[in-house]
Amino acid sequence: MSGVKQIAAIIKKDMIAELRTKEMVVSMFLFVLLVMVAFKYAFGDSDNFSTYAGGLLWVAFLFTALLGLNRSFVHEKDEGCLEGLLLAPVDRPNIFFGKMIGNIIFISVVEIITIPIYIVLFKLSIQGSIALFAGAIILSNIGISTVGTLLSTVSINTKMRDMLLPLIFLPVILPVLAAAVVSTGGIMAGVTGEKLVNVFSAMKLLIAYDILFLLVAYALYDFVIGE
């Protein structure tokens, strides 16, 4: 089986499992809604959320992604599927790419449903280019899934399991959070001039981060997933 086919097979397996139970996307979606309601009360009777638009979005998405990333290997490990995957004649980095793309799909589905609700709830609007907005989100999703899949493989192999993931994932993902907030926040506010340059430098940072961590994951996955 070629590499692409192996990756596709893993993604397909995850999709079928998800379509049968729907547990991941549904719980991630409910969680992100709850976080948004919590935000409403955390910020009191403030009625103008536009300053925090990017921040609100990404804090919610990051924690939601964390929820999904934890699940992504927990059930593999619990049902003994991971051993099966490791025994199958599949290259280790392909397991990574399969799981990573699966995670991108889950996170993106939740985001596509949530963003309109979020815009309505907080009376926001996307004043800049929608394509650019989508681009910034996709770049951030790639970063989150790459690092998340790599580190959830690390955490699943420890005693602490899902307790450990936030502790090692959040500090590593902070550059993505910062860049995602600057870029999406800027695009939503429809900034121009010097601030738009800031948006672009944030997106360049996201691209660099994604490429570098894809390489790191490719190089390290063999060691991380275990013998």
Partner: peptide
């Protein structure tokens, strides 16, 4: 040993990004 060695590499790659990311926030 294996996991912490991998993590030390990941952490060291993160540091320069953190450095730049913080500087683009207005």
């Amino acid at each position: 040993a294996r996991l912490s060695a991998a993590y030390s590499v990941i952490a060291s790659v993160t540091v320069p990004f953190t450095f730049f990311a913080i500087r683009i926030i207005p």
